[in-house]
């Protein structure tokens, strides 16, 4: 599983530009199911099981990651940009980036030595940052790329004990779990959705769910783990190594109470996502059609939406086991 996550996380796929990840996933799941791609680029794959459950079950993981889009090229060859998805300015400052999967650059700004007293204690306006790709003029830059091109902050993929450190763990971990389910799980039919544009407003999942029209949905995600230094116990949300995190409510969804209870009583290592913050594709999915009963299973992830997210492999295993368990539970739920 870790190798599969590594392959996926090191691909670049800013929202709206998910092709690299989609192609990789197609190459993995093609032998196991029928695949359709919709107008927005969502990939919908039907996996036949031994039995067809009474309820149509959909599983979702999103392919896109946070990044940035080039908005302007200066006459000196520097690029102005806007973040795609929610990224803290700290996570952008002085980061090495890759644009269009091939052009290296650096998000640059004023060095600390030239920053005056109070200025160096506050984050700069994100508008004051720019990308340097080494172009000597606007014309040279325009020969390499154009406004509207996207990029991501680059990262190594590091395994440290039970933890992994990388960019894009949100939500390539979910993608990897879903691929693994397609490869290994054969009990009941289910429809896998690898969705686009989650980070820019849960958009892909809206059209994909319309097409699938499920009765029940399982969202495979990663979520903020704030179990870090100097954060009080009641603000930690969930912790690494504590098992799969199951949501009861966030800013986009009030989750199905029964599914939540079933997950918490599954006997698999789980923990509640104990804060009503954030949001994921469940927000779009549960409001689709006449409504869809929805559960979100998340892998706790520190420093999410940065190029250095940290997740725990035991939690990933638990999320996989819980997803499998919940398919069975929903299939047998009267």
């Amino acid at each position: 599983m870790t190798d599969m996550i590594r392959e996926l996380a090191l691909l670049d796929a800013t929202s709206g530009d998910e092709k690299a990840v989609r192609d990789h996933i197609i190459s993995k799941i093609k032998p196991y199911c029928d695949i359709k791609t919709d107008a927005l680029g969502n990939m919908i794959a039907f996996k036949k099981g031994k039995k067809t459950p009474a309820k149509k079950i959909m599983l979702d993981a999103h392919m896109d990651e946070v990044g940035f889009i080039i908005t302007h090229i200066t006459k000196d060859g520097f690029l102005r940009f806007k973040p795609v998805g929610g990224i803290n300015t700290s996570a952008l400052m002085f980061k090495t980036v890759l644009i269009n999967g091939k052009t290296a650059g650096v998000i640059s700004g004023k060095p600390i030595h030239l920053t005056k007293d109070e200025e160096c204690k506050k984050l700069p306006d994100a508008d004051k940052l720019y990308i340097d790709i080494g172009a000597k003029s606007g014309e040279e830059a325009e020969r390499i790329l154009t406004v509207g091109d996207r990029g991501v902050m680059v990262s190594d993929f590091t395994v440290s004990g039970k933890n992994i450190i990388s960019k894009a763990l949100d939500d390539r971990i979910g993608c990897a779990i879903l691929i693994k389910l397609i490869e290994e799980y054969g009990e009941y039919d289910f429809t896998a959705v690898f969705s686009v544009q989650e980070e820019v407003g849960l958009r892909g999942a809206k059209t994909a769910t319309y097409a699938v029209n499920p009765d029940a949905a399982i969202i495979l995600e990663s979520t903020t783990a704030a179990d870090i230094a100097d954060v009080p116990e009641d603000k930690t949300v969930c912790r690494l190594g504590g098992g799969a995190a199951v949501s009861f409510m966030d800013r986009a969804t009030v989750y199905d109470r029964e599914y939540y209870a079933a997950a918490m009583n599954s006997g698999i290592p789980v923990q509640p996502k104990s804060a009503a913050t954030g949001g994921n594709n469940a927000g779009s999915v549960h409001l689709s059609g006449e409504g869809v009963r929805t559960i979100a299973i998340s892998v706790p992830c520190r420093y999410i939406h940065s190029s250095s997210s940290v997740a725990n492999t035991d939690d990933i295993r638990a999320a996989y086991d819980l997803a499998k368990y919940m398919i069975g539970y929903i299939a047998n739920d009267k």
């Binding site: 300015t89 700290s90 002085f94 440290s160 903020t224 420093y303 250095s308 940290v310």
Partner: peptide
């Protein structure tokens, strides 16, 4: 200001990869 979420190498008994904590959203 640029440290949160930055990766570093910690040169202990062996070299391990670390990450500067960033304040969760």
């Amino acid at each position: 200001r640029a440290l949160p979420s930055r990766q570093v190498d910690i040169h202990g008994k062996r070299t391990v990869r670390g990450v500067f904590c960033s304040t969760p959203p």
